[in-house]
Design a protein around this nucleic acid. Structure first.
Lengths: 155, 155
DNA sequence: TTACGTGCAAATACTTTGCAGTTCC
DNA sequence: GGAACTGCAAAGTATTTGCACGTAA
């Protein structure tokens, strides 16, 4: 069932390599595969670990280098959450921002056309032309809020 | 005229030190003074350089350590803009977020009650309790937009 | 064949920590 | 006098780069 995960993205990457006179390699394939199979927000270490399941010799250096290529190919984006660098899929995904639960570390995505609109408004007020943004909201997710309410009550 | 810059904040810091059994020092005073006199978004290097104008022997280590104290005392906040760590005054300042011009690096502040409100809305939709957020908008400021329009026209 | 790719080790950049000497209270 | 403070050098992190060897095209 999960065969062909990210088939389209693999084609995009192949295309990117070809167009830039670069070559395919087992390592790049293992890394891309691992990246595509995980729906999560991966750290370099996560990705290294996952890629090594398939190809144990993959080096950390190659992960860094491949991530750079994936970003240039429009397949990955870097985000820094609470000081930690993570990567997520980018290809054909709608723009979104993140909630981060300080208790469990879970990351939730959100997007709001309304916020985007007001941003544009505020920007144009000072003659600023927007080209991108990062919006991160920290706090407690539903289950962590519930958990702490429970332990509160227990006192 | 500019005597007594941040008098209130100095008092807050003294109070903080006292309450925690910590001591005042020439270095801490020089660093705080430099921090308060500058209205900008300072890097560690900026602050080190400024503090050294007053006390040339101030060490980088002490700047790091003092910045930590200033944050704990509620006088400074750290922000990471385009991968660069910066510090700004926090005491009694209204919450705000940042525009960053990719061309000249200039940082502009903004705030929008409307955005805050929608954030709360979006958060409560998923049962998330907000505790803080970071919102950074990248693009081109008015003068850089004008400048590039001019060089466009020249072609 | 040859330009590109790889892993390792070394180099960077930024920040923290250990330590021996100094200063504040 | 003793705990706290300081600067330096060393140790950590995270990421990048130089290089000799390996490999896709």
């Amino acid at each position: 069932m999960k065969r062909d995960v990210g088939r389209e993205e693999k084609a995009v990457f192949a295309e990117y390599l070809a167009r830039h006179g670069l070559k395919r390699s087992e390592q790049r394939e293992a890394i891309l595969e691992a990246f595509l199979r995980s729906e999560r927000h991966l750290s370099v270490d996560d990705l290294l670990r996952l890629a090594r399941k398939r190809r144990p010799e993959v080096g950390r250096t190659t992960v860094y280098r491949t991530l750079k290529l994936l970003q240039e190919a429009g397949l990955a984006t870097e985000l820094v959450l609470r000081g930690e660098t993570r990567f997520e899929r980018e290809y054909k995904r709608q723009h979104h921002d993140h909630f981060i639960c300080k208790a469990c570390g879970e990351i939730f995505e959100f997007s709001s056309d309304e916020i985007e609109r007001i941003q544009e408004q505020v920007a144009s007020d000072i003659g600023f032309v927007i080209d991108g943004h990062r919006h991160q909201i920290y706090g407690a997710c539903r289950s962590c809020t519930a958990r702490s309410a429970r332990s509160e009550a227990r006192r």
